Simulated scan of single mutants.
Amino acid sequence: MLHHSVLKSDVEDALNVFICHGILGSGQNWRGFARKLQEIRSLNIVLMDLRCHGRSPAKIPPHTVDACSRDLFKLSGAVGAPDIVIGHSFGGKVALASLRYLNPQQVWVLDSPPGPLSDKPEDRHEVSRVISALNSIPLPLKKRQDLKDLLVSFGFSEMIGNWMTTNLKRTEDGFVWKFDLMGVERLIKDYFKQDLWSLIETKQESEIHLVRAQNSDRWSQSILERLKKQSATKIHTLPNSGHWVHVDNPNGLLDIFDRFLVRSV
């Protein structure tokens, strides 16, 4: 079963929420935002490490978006079925795909286009470039700072360097990855291939909300035009934010949730 933590509400009839992190992330990345979300709603929030990430086991292949969504179904047997599933980036497609196995009241997709994405070198997003760089880093490392220095020397920002140091764990020989890098590579390749437009464009029993970050590089003009033509999904634009929505504009994201997140009866 996925490693997880539950942030319990004091309210008896609080709704259950699953939050799915992005690639190379972990449930811990969303703890601060989850606490703020609990200030505006009575929610039990489940923060999990998706397969091949954090303290969750790599599990048996195939490592795919669909396999991750089936992991959510198995997790629901232990913590209760979710009323709301929220997913960011890679986790956004996992949240959408979970509609095949779960029946939440709402699904929230945060800055994650529903269709296939190009994996050509010239089109690759920053996380894909990070994964390629990680394959060239010799492990174990003597200290966390060594990883940051290497990534910055490769041309990545200090923010990316600091973020990736949270993915290291100490062993007797030095620092190594918390995640299964080979498994993560398979997950991101499947993420790029997945076409979930049918779930966005067809009326579902669950209410679907898609949040696009205003300054994100994930959205081509053709994707935006296609979104305009559909009426089954509610589309929101988060201003003053790049891809890292809960970091770039957490208050703006909270405002969207405050206005549209389903309320307990």
Rank of each mutant, 00 (worst) to 15 (best):
S5H: 11
S9T: 02
I19D: 01
S26L: 07
R31W: 02
F33W: 08
A34E: 03
A34L: 03
R35Y: 10
R35M: 12
N44G: 00
I45A: 00
M48H: 05
R55A: 06
K59C: 08
I60P: 01
A67M: 09
R70K: 15
D71F: 02
L75N: 03
A78V: 12
D83N: 14
V85S: 08
G87T: 09
G91W: 00
G92F: 10
V94C: 11
L99Y: 13
Y101E: 07
N103E: 13
V107E: 05
P116F: 01
L117M: 05
S118Y: 05
R124W: 10
H125Y: 09
S128F: 10
R129N: 14
L134H: 12
N135W: 12
D149E: 09
S157G: 04
I160H: 02
T166L: 13
N167C: 12
N167I: 07
D173S: 14
D173L: 09
D173T: 10
F175G: 00
F179Y: 13
D180H: 14
R186H: 12
K189M: 12
Y191T: 01
Q194P: 01
W197P: 11
I208W: 11
Q214M: 07
N215K: 15
Q221I: 08
L224A: 08
E225K: 15
R226E: 07
K228F: 02
A232L: 06
T233F: 00
G242C: 00
D248G: 05
D258N: 15
D258I: 00
L261Q: 11
S264T: 08
